[in-house]
Nucleic acid binder design. Structure first.
Length: 928
RNA sequence: GCUCGGGUGGUGGAACUGGUAGACACGCAGGACUUAAAAUCCUGUGCACCUAAAAUGCGUGCGGGUUCGAUUCCCGCCCCGAGUACCA
């Protein structure tokens, strides 16, 4: 029979599901391998052709690893809490659980059609109570923990209480709020329970704090920094403003250093690591306090070059700094107010983009340099950011170009501080070379000497200290939404208390509407009779989107465990994710939060690995490729009924209109389908080129409104899943972003038919023989064994598809019908095209379902050994001819043969060779 | 501005440590089969020159360098994409 992909694929998908072929066992004599995809949010639109790209790659890898003798864990699930379902609920009144359920069903159907080897017995859904019970449980562990800097890890809060009992707060080294009290054990004993809780909250790894948050009025919720782009929400693009709110936060800053160091131990794409480093934004320096003249205030600045402090010639506050009004003299009041008004007018974007213009205003006030005693002017300028460091900066014009421009512009002194600084009347010189001059008690020191000396001095004088500054802030954890995990906390006397563990999961209550209340409270405030057993009131905000995804890879290890988030044995066995494939858009969100929770769980001894994802691959984004038709407009610019082919459109006045890419093939429009597509085109007329209507092309985001969404279902219907899988890989390197087009899919489909035909005779009857394989057949086979192995291991899937085509072309030409050869071909191809391979495997006489766990053929280099090689002969580096020579020959013999060759003599053109370069098995190059 | 990618035929792309640039496919052209079309199969296909073939020349963003030999290494520049940004 001809290649009946539809029958074959349905048959094997059913077989795999019924037999649970890909169920992973948590104990095995085989080595383990954990392949994870970033689980999807099940959106209403279903999968488009871009989604499966990474899943196909990870599936090929998983299947390959099974064949290589690994016990592979390859699970899938759904990140099913989220905003779109809630927005839909607000509009329609439909409970998000219902739409989510329906969307998941669609996703599952689509995923099953592609033939993935997921172990569905381990499926997780973050919105299921049996799952979010453990998300809540982890929240409780965070609440019950503090970060002890002495041993650099999180500990149970009880060890902190012990310290308070025995020695008070004095020798506690913790990551905590800045306003912690200092007290003796005797003080602690006198604290009321409320006072104690209030103080402990300042140390807990999840805590409540009044903080400035990104408030999105349109969405009615708070957004994390990575959910905001240029002042607009990432989802929906609504304006975001700053607002002060009591909020749950996660003390991720406690882990900043470990998150940074861990990056050096994992095999991730360098750009992602770099993005995380920038996001964390560690800078090592010092904080220094400048005394304000005529005021008791001290302005604290952060600097990475404390050694330049004798070169300070002014100080700058951010215009938004809270002391600006107070520290402005009456004489300068007008100038400062004008300046502030002027900066406010500039949008955030302008302010960031315009880094050339120097601007600022003098406050009239002077501050005193604590090191030199010099008095310097206090300015405000918008190049200082209120949100970073202390919102105040010291200006050292000789060492910093921006300070130099400022000083030059406003006529402030420029003081040389290192003898190695050059041309500082032309520009700043940031050198660390040489010895200090004009620098009081550090004169003559080097950079390396000055830094520790000054840090000590500042600390002794109590005017500063060495300090490490991070750009990253603690992660805000509350969302004023319905469709998220309830936070397992209740309030009494304004203080938060955890539920008892037995009360988990704290279920989402039913409510009548999914909007915030009229008084601006979160939707959960609408829940009636939702009262904690212990009295008081429940926390009304829910967890953010990233909560459920910050630990899900552990749940897969033991997905159905009711007594634990995962058993000790499962965690011990599966350890960490060996290969993680997903998009780079999660660089500073999911991937950072996951690393944080992972480290925390390890600190408490629940898990073993410092890093959750050993190797990360980012698949590229599949963009849309839109097609256009060109409608001709008449002289008055009115649309006509005639459409002109793209190549001829310059001769007319036209409007470009999106046309559904599904009625266009290889950029040629199907005219009948076009007429039937929409009523308005029913009577369309065309101006063709070469008898065809060629459409215009543009690369855009894949979206419904651009009619460029390609759905995997249609392609599977037409070509089958095996073709789709191979074609997506054939498209180009996995990590590269590329526009989708279906132009080459025929080639892949033809290849699979050709492969199928290898096993069949002219009449399409299955036909192989048991002859002894020929040398040529073995060579083809072993070439592809090696190639596919190498390609898969370096994630170069596109090149192995090409190699398969070459191998099948070769074997077809050799008329190979040999069982041994063909059976190995089936195994090698099976990770890419599993359905057709399962079918052929059984036709070859093997037991159904054993293909996935058979052995990948072993590469034998002997079969590739050649005794002859067609040497390219080049003259002066230009290829001229090929010369077939035995590989045993060495240079003198080769030279003799070459010089005797008539054809070669022609190229010499009578001249004699100066030098002959011979590289065995590679090339002969003759220099004339 | 900085950091990281990338620039190769009409198109997607290949060339893994410097060694025959353009594998494999799409598209296109021609042919076979067919009453015809589709499907299938075969042949050709970097560009220029030439009626054609042969030959020759030019060719991996641009300019230079190293080398017997450079898509690959080095220097300078241009362009595209991603990330990030007065970070003190």
């Amino acid at each position: 029979m001809d290649y009946q992909f539809k029958e074959i694929e349905q048959k094997w998908q059913k077989f795999w599901a019924d037999k649970q072929t890909f169920k992973a066992e948590t104990n095995s004599t085989k080595p383990k391998y954990y392949v994870l995809d970033m689980f999807p949010y099940p959106s209403g639109a279903g999968l488009h052709v871009g989604h499966p790209l990474g899943y196909i790659a990870s599936d090929i890898f998983s299947r390959y690893k099974r064949l290589k003798g690994f016990n592979v864990l390859h699970p899938m699930g759904y990140d099913s809490f989220g905003l779109p379902a809630e927005q839909y609920a607000i509009q329609t009144g439909q409970h998000p659980a219902i739409t989510t359920e329906a969307n998941i069903a669609t996703y599952r159907r689509q995923l099953d059609q592609i033939g993935f080897s997921f172990d569905w017995s381990r499926e997780v859904r973050t919105s299921e109570p049996s799952y979010y019970k453990w998300t809540q449980w982890i929240f409780m562990q965070l609440f019950n923990s503090w970060y002890n800097l002495e041993n650099d890890k999180a500990e149970d809060i009880s060890t902190l209480i012990e310290k308070f009992n025995s020695s008070g707060s004095a020798d506690v080294k913790a990551v905590c709020d800045e306003d912690t009290k200092s007290f003796l054990p005797s003080d602690w004993a006198t604290f009321t329970e409320e006072q104690k809780q209030e103080e402990l909250l300042k140390y807990r790894l999840t805590y409540l704090r009044e903080s400035t948050v990104n408030w999105c009025p349109a969405l009615g919720t708070v957004l994390a920094n990575d959910e905001v782009k240029d002042g607009f929400s990432e989802r929906g693009g609504y304006p975001v403003e700053q607002k002060k709110m009591m909020q749950w936060s996660m003390r991720i800053t406690a882990y900043a250093d470990r998150l940074l160091q861990g990056l050096d131990t994992i095999d991730w794409p360098e750009p992602i690591k770099e993005m995380q480093r920038n996001w964390i934004g560690k800078s090592v320096g010092a904080s220094v306090k400048f005394q304000v003249e005529g005021n008791d205030k001290q302005i604290e600045v952060f600097t990475t070059r404390v050694d330049t402090i004798f070169g300070v010639s002014y100080l700058v506050l951010a215009p938004e700094h809270e002391w600006v009004a107070e520290l402005t003299t009456p004489g300068q009041k007008q100038a400062v107010e004008n300046y502030i008004a002027q900066t406010k007018k500039k949008s955030e974007l302008d302010r960031m983009a315009d880094t050339k213009t120097v601007s600022g205003a003098f406050t009239g006030t002077y501050v005193v340099n604590p090191v030199s005693g010099e008095r310097v002017q206090l300015w405000i300028a918008d190049y200082v950011l209120a949100g970073y460091g202390t919102g105040a900066v010291m200006g050292v014009p000789s060492g910093d170009q921006r300070d130099w421009l400022f000083a030059t512009h406003f006529n402030l002194p420029i003081i040389q501080i290192l003898d190695a600084q050059k041309d500082i009347d032309q520009q700043a010189d940031a050198t660390k070379e040489g010895k200090y001059i004009n620098s009081g008690f550090i004169n003559g020191m080097t950079y390396k000497e000055a830094i520790p000396f000054l840090n000590n001095w500042l600390e002794e004088q109590k005017v500063g200290k060495a300090k490490v500054n991070f750009r990253q802030r603690d992660a805000i954890f509350g969302r004023q939404r319905y469709w998220g995990e309830p936070i397992p906390v209740y309030f009494k006397n304004n203080l938060p208390y955890l539920l008892n563990e037995e009360e988990l999961p704290l279920l989402l209550p039913e409510i009548d509407k999914y909007l915030p209340t009229e008084t601006g409270e979160p939707p959960l405030a609408r829940a009636e009779d939702w009262i904690p057993a212990a009295g008081g009131t429940y926390e009304l905000s829910t967890m953010p989107g990233w909560a459920g995804s910050s630990w899900y890879w552990y749940r897969y290890m033991d997905a159905n465990n009711n007594g634990d988030f995962a058993s000790k044995e499962a965690i011990e066995y599966w350890k960490a994710v060996d290969l993680y494939i997903g998009g780079s858009e999660h660089a500073t969100g999911h991937l950072l939060y996951s690393r944080f929770w992972n480290k925390f769980l390890k600190d408490l001894g629940y898990t073993k690995e410092e890093e959750p994802f050993k190797k990360l691959i980012n698949q590229g984004m599949i963009q849309g490729r839109s097609n256009f038709v060109y409608r001709i407009n008449d002289a008055d610019g009115k649309p006509t009924n005639t459409y002109v082919s793209a190549g001829l459109r310059k001769e007319y006045k036209t409007s470009a209109l999106h046309v559904d890419v599904n009625i266009v093939e290889n950029d040629t429009l199907d005219l009948n389908k076009f007429k039937n597509w929409r009523e308005e085109y029913a009577n369309a007329e065309f101006i063709l080129e070469g008898g065809k209507y060629i459409c215009g092309v543009e690369v855009e985001k894949m979206s419904k409104s651009k009619f460029n969404v390609v759905n995997p279902d249609d392609l599977i219907e037409r070509y089958g899943a095996d073709t789709l899988r191979m074609y997506e890989m054939f498209l180009g390197p996995l990590e590269q972003s590329k526009p989708w087009n279906t132009n080459g899919i025929e080639g892949v489909f033809k290849f699979l038919r050709k492969f199928w035909r290898l096993f069949h005779n002219e009449e399409w009857h299955f036909h192989v023989n048991d002859s002894v394989p020929t040398k040529a057949e073995l060579k083809s086979l072993h070439k592809i064994i090696k190639k596919v192995q190498d390609d898969i291991e370096r994630f170069s899937f596109n090149t192995s598809v090409s190699s398969f085509m070459i191998a099948v072309n070769e074997l077809t030409d050799l008329k190979c019908k040999n069982r041994q050869i063909l059976e190995d071909m089936v195994i090698i191809l099976s990770p890419y095209a599993p359905h057709i391979c399962e079918e052929l495997w059984v036709l070859l006489g093997n037991e159904a379902g054993t293909l996935s766990y058979t052995k990948f053929p072993t590469f034998n280099p002997e079969y590739l050994v050649e005794d002859e090689f067609a040497y390219p002969v080049s003259v002066n580096g230009k290829m001229k001819m090929n010369l077939n020579l035995s590989l045993t020959l060495d240079q003198p013999e080769v030279e003799a043969i070459l010089l005797a060759n008539e054809q070669f003599q022609k190229f010499l053109d009578g001249k004699s060779p100066k030098k002959i370069i011979f590289v065995k098995g590679k090339i002969i190059n003759v220099v004339v």
